[in-house]
Design a protein around this nucleic acid. Sequence first.
DNA 1: ATACATACC
DNA 2: TACTGGTATGTAT
Length: 914
Amino acid sequence: MESLHHQGAANSSSGAHLLSRIALNDNKAGMEGLDRDKINKIILETSKGSKFYENELKKEQQVNQRIEKMMEQKARITKEQLKQAQAEVDKLTCELERSRELGRVIVHVDMDAFYAAVEMRDCPELKDQPMAVGSMSMLSTSNYHARRFGVRAAMPGFIAKKLCPNLVIVPTNFDKYRAVSAQVREIFSEYDPHFMPMSLDEAYLDITEHLEQRKHWPETMRTYHIHDAKTGNDADMSAAESERDDLSPVLFEDSPSSSPSLSGADRKAEVFGTSAEEAVREMRFRIEQKTSLTASAGIAPNTMLAKVCSDKNKPNGQYRIPPERQVVMEFMKDLPVRKVSGVGKVTEKMLAALGIANCDQLGQQMALLSLLFSGSSWHNFLHISLGLGSTCMARNSERKSISTEMTFGEMSDAEEQYSLCRDLCHDLAEDLQREGLKGKTVTLKLKNVKFEVKTRAFTLQYAVCSEEEIFAAAKDLLKVEIDSVSPQPLKLRLMGVRVSAFISAEDKKPLQRSIMGFLQKDGSDSGSFTQCAGSVLKAEEDSDGASFLKPQSTEMKEPSVSEQKSKSKGAQQQSFFQRAQLKRLQQQKEQMSVMAGTDTTNNSADAAAATPIDLPTTNNLSDTTSAKSLSNTNSGTDTTSHVSKPAVLKPSFKISTQVLQFLICPVCNTEMKDVNLTAFNNHIDECLKGSAVDNEPTHLDAPKEQEELDSKPPASSSESRTLKSSTHDSSCNEEKPSTSISVPLVDEDGDFKTPFFCHRTKINGKRSVISKKKMPVFESSSKSSTTTHDLEAVTEMSSNSKDSSLTCPVCSQPQSTDDLVLFNRHVDLCLNQDVLLEFRESPPPVDHSEEPALKSVRGQLGDQGRVSEVKGKSKRQPSSSSLPPSKKIKVLSTKHTIDKFFKSNAGQKVYPER
DNA sequence: ATACATACC
DNA sequence: TACTGGTATGTAT
């Protein structure tokens, strides 16, 4: 079979068609002339039989099938099709050729074996032996010594040890790499203030402008003095070279360096020329002087070429492709496709199956490729074959997602899984808030012990960023997965949570304004919001229910968008809420005029003095996500989704004793007594349809709910937590549908509270904010007891104002005061901070050394910030926070622990050197 | 929109 | 004993 033949060709190793993913990856620099067969044999023997290996085999077979399919497709292609395709390719080629841009001078700089080099620099004993940075589980990078044994980045340490028993494995020390990286970047910025860092150890620069100016520079500006490392003396430096009083360069004394000879002891200064090569040589020289580390660089008319070039003379070398089409094409001719960034092992293998190994062949086969691959794929191939690439530094594009994940020893206990999930959400929320981001899509990632990866996503109607909100979604996604295999446990080795679909800056600003506007209108007696003119009642008097709703509808911008499409449930809910709200407000007004003076009604003065700071809370999210998960689990009727409808529970006279006695239909405003949720939702359905209102609702059966009752979710899951404070968390329904109705958000005034905008209640006779956040905390409440008594907890919370510790809904911090004025002032401050954040250009600078999480890690380890044994950017060991010691999960991964601290600081990605 | 795969460091 | 973590994007449904 042709494909097999080519697969064999693609996989230069020992003829194993099925092992291209397992065999040594030797096509990226540093591993020439190795005994691949021997190395692969060892790798194979070490891996064989492992779960990892089995999974890799499976994936490999999937790729093979994909290739087979492709070959079948290829066999069906006619000459005519090919001819037509060729015409299209030629046309596009012409266009691309016409717009070829050769005027920029793009440089890709890549530190050589960065992490390893740093460790070697700081520990000379490592210099002469094979070493790698990482752990027994995974290596970030290896030095060139180790590479001779086939030890390379992304290889697990225990396999590396098999290949090279003398290998020294040094734990990562990101603090150090970041510090060095910062030094290097200082230099970069002198050549291109807009340089684009790709990781700690590499960056793209556009030095076109620099070269333009450089032409006119006098020699003195291009003169750099050699730092005599031996004596520690700096010869006077014309262009300041600072601080390093270190050793001479550690690596590659015999490398094809084009940097000035450092060995010439009499050589005291180096004058660099004005050409691109000279400028880059100078840059690399300065890096070496400053850090004792070497870098390699590529110079070319675009990023794609520059990247390839930087690899060409690695380590400690550079290569330039001059800005001439002919030279570019000549360079591309023999370039293996795999050398191009973006072409990975799968693409390589697929192309190999088509007889394509280098870029020349790629160009030859473009017509075929255009028929076999998607548009974006073959366009990319065409660009590559023509030697085209990006010529501008794509301005640091906005991040699209943010996530956190963790690998650990087998975890089968659902409680533990929920707990870990919460911890991940906690960390993620911190990251989100640090960057001032809010996203609508929450994705749960699971990897089982067989290395099978699953992702489950849910898109909310509005953007979230708090732990509670994220967790409310994630835990439901997790629940579905747990339930789907129940009573078998999920046997996990990794869990991750991601938030994406961020609301854009344009979306966020009006959002913030509307929140402020809302708060101002509902200005409180706290003294913070002095504009008290408006109030809920004022809005009513204006017959302008919408003005009350305004903050809500702006907050949930997306639903209003989908409303236009009239597609989603959210849209229906949205308009429903608005209608219901209007109607109810009108009715309330009528009642008010009748019952004026009663303490169950509000008057304008009261309302003006009150401080209903309504913030979107987890409830909203829980409702929608739970509804989804329920219907998934149940294949249930619509009834479950009604949970998120504005079911209104009216407490009778005393909240403390009589909560949850009545449901009030938000449409017809009828009180319904002793009715289960299904019946109530059915009633609402009828009302919405405009049919007769059933004032004496029957106790319709609720088999679904009954089932829910029977299959009670783990008590440890968030349900119990969210439930207690967020009384309309849908989880109530999952657990005890007939009693703990989930939407009892009515205050004494009978104010209708939409599930999306809730949590007003009275404390000490004044309205204030009750945040559910952190109130019913998992850890602090006995897990099993929480589920059954949440309603009482709510009740107590509402009536027992004395010892109610208030929690700020913005910062989630419990406030020590019971004084509502003080509390509201605090909320005010928090909110203002939020607004300020929104208008800030970039995230606030973060002092890594003072990063709280980091500090805690230091505390644990008693070492200067070494976090090698603590996972996940110094995530607290999830279990340690919420599980008894005996349940501590075993964290396997040890790598890349605090990348994100740097990232969030610099707004740049941080990757290990590869 | 969701799920999964590929790729990068 | 032991095979990462974070982000973007492509492919497929």
